[in-house]
Amino acid sequence: MTLEANVIRDDAVSRTSEGYDVAVHIAWYRSLPLSCIESITITLGDKSFTSEDVKLKWEGELLPLSALADRTEDWWFVQDALTFQVPDASPVNAGEKTKLAVSLATRIPYIIIGPNFPLVQRTDVEKEVTVQ
Rank of each mutant, 00 (worst) to 15 (best):
Y20D: 08
Y20N: 09
K47Y: 02
I42K: 06
K57D: 03
S48H: 06
G45I: 13
A69W: 05
A69S: 14
D53G: 15
V22W: 13
E38W: 11
T72H: 13
G60V: 05
S31V: 09
L63R: 09
W58C: 04
I37W: 14
E18C: 01
I37G: 00
E59V: 02
A23C: 15
D21I: 12
L62S: 07
A69C: 06
R71Q: 12
L56A: 00
T50F: 13
L56H: 01
T50L: 01
V22M: 15
Y20H: 06
C36K: 11
L63C: 09
D70K: 00
A67K: 06
I26P: 12
D21L: 14
V54L: 01
F49R: 09
A23Y: 12
L34R: 09
E38K: 15
S17V: 14
W28V: 05
V22R: 15
E18G: 03
S66D: 10
I42A: 05
T43L: 10
L44D: 01
T72Q: 12
L65F: 05
E61W: 00
K47P: 01
S48L: 06
I26S: 08
D46S: 15
L62T: 07
G19H: 07
T50E: 09
Y20W: 10
A67S: 13
D53V: 14
E52Q: 13
L32Y: 09
T50Y: 09
L56V: 05
D46K: 15
D46R: 15
A69Q: 13
L68A: 00
H25A: 09
K47G: 02
K55G: 00
W58Q: 06
L32A: 02
A67H: 04
Y29K: 00
A27W: 04
L63A: 04
L56Y: 01
L62M: 10
Y29G: 02
K57I: 08
K55P: 02
I42W: 12
Y20G: 10
K47F: 01
L32M: 11
R71K: 15
L65V: 08
Y29E: 08
V54T: 07
T72K: 14
E52I: 12
L34E: 01
A69G: 12
L68E: 03
I42S: 04
H25G: 06
K55A: 03
L68G: 05
S17C: 01
D21W: 09
I40G: 01
L56W: 05
K47T: 04
